[in-house]
């Protein structure tokens, strides 16, 4: 795996992903047009950990889909290493909320899936796969099938599978929101360890304020109707990584208020704002 520091030196200022005045419009079935996002400008630099916070249905998942190439922007552009993004690519890894592990494959086979589909033989002995398995602490469970795993383990395997193909950036869409609080905290630590240990670049979407502060180096709040970036914060200071620190608590309160107000606004405007796309 790449080391964190050398990465920072290599590509210090060249962004991996850039959004330039991105707008996303959906055509709903009753001929209405729903603008999910508008005027999004954003760049993801190598080594970043960006958390995107917003209420449910506020457009943050749509933003992640745009960044991942799942859906194209209606106007503006999404650039990947300076070139317009042409759809889904292994260079931009994605992890979703619901597990997407293949139930007919073992943990190890799931993690080496990226090598198998590209016709690389002997994928199980691939050193990259073995290293990732060790890194995420799954050596004991490599022969198990997904239905034999707990929810937290499944998410760990999903993350490991995406990391194994060494993407330039990893996008995570509410990866822990289906888990209980204790497990979520453990996996948050796990994710931070991975980020620090591998020097990967991550973008994580969440509606959980605490998670957004604890994990991110930069925090973006999506809000308004249509959705836009209403706040950008640099939270790399270690004071924000301590749940009992005053700075952390103040920021938490501030963000909870913003997100709460967002829900109120959504309730007052037409019901369509709740439509999650």
């Amino acid at each position: 795996m790449r080391s964190h520091s050398s990465n920072l030196c290599k590509n210090h200022l060249r962004p991996i992903l850039t959004c330039r005045d991105v707008k996303k419009v959906f055509h709903t079935n009753n001929k209405n047009v729903f603008t999910a996002l508008s005027g999004i400008n954003l760049s993801v630099v190598d080594g970043d950990f960006i958390t995107i916070l917003g209420r449910s249905g506020g457009g943050k998942s749509t933003l992640l889909k745009l960044l991942g190439g799942i859906t194209p922007p209606s106007s503006g552009e999404v650039l990947f290493h300076g070139v317009p993004l042409q759809g889904i690519t292994p260079k931009i890894g994605m992890v979703f909320q619901e597990n997407t592990l293949y139930p007919w494959l073992t943990v190890e086979q799931n993690i080496s899936f990226g090598f198998k589909v590209r016709g690389k033989r002997k994928c199980s002995s691939n050193p990259q796969v073995q290293e990732v398995i060790k890194q995420v602490g799954l050596s004991q469970s490599r022969e198990l099938y997904p239905h034999q795993l707990s929810g937290g383990m499944k998410q760990r395997v999903s993350i490991a599978r995406s990391l194994a193909v060494q993407p330039d950036v990893l996008l995570l869409d509410e990866p822990f929101s289906a888990l209980d609080v204790q497990l979520r905290r453990r996996l948050q630590k796990f994710l931070l360890n991975i980020w620090q240990g591998t020097g990967s670049t991550m973008v994580l979407v969440t509606h959980d304020v605490e998670e957004a502060i604890l994990l991110g180096q930069k925090l973006i709040v999506i809000g308004g109707q249509p959705g836009g970036i209403i706040e950008r914060l640099n939270i790399s200071d270690s004071a924000f990584k301590d749940r009992y620190n005053k700075k952390f608590l103040d920021l938490q309160q501030h963000l909870e208020r913003i997100v709460g107000e967002e829900y109120e606004i959504a309730k007052e405007s037409c019901g369509i704002a709740y439509m999650s796309v």
């Binding site: 589909v117 599978r161 193909v165």
Partner: peptide
Amino acid sequence: NFLITAENLG
């Protein structure tokens, strides 16, 4: 997501 993930893994 099964199909998106597959494409995402190359």
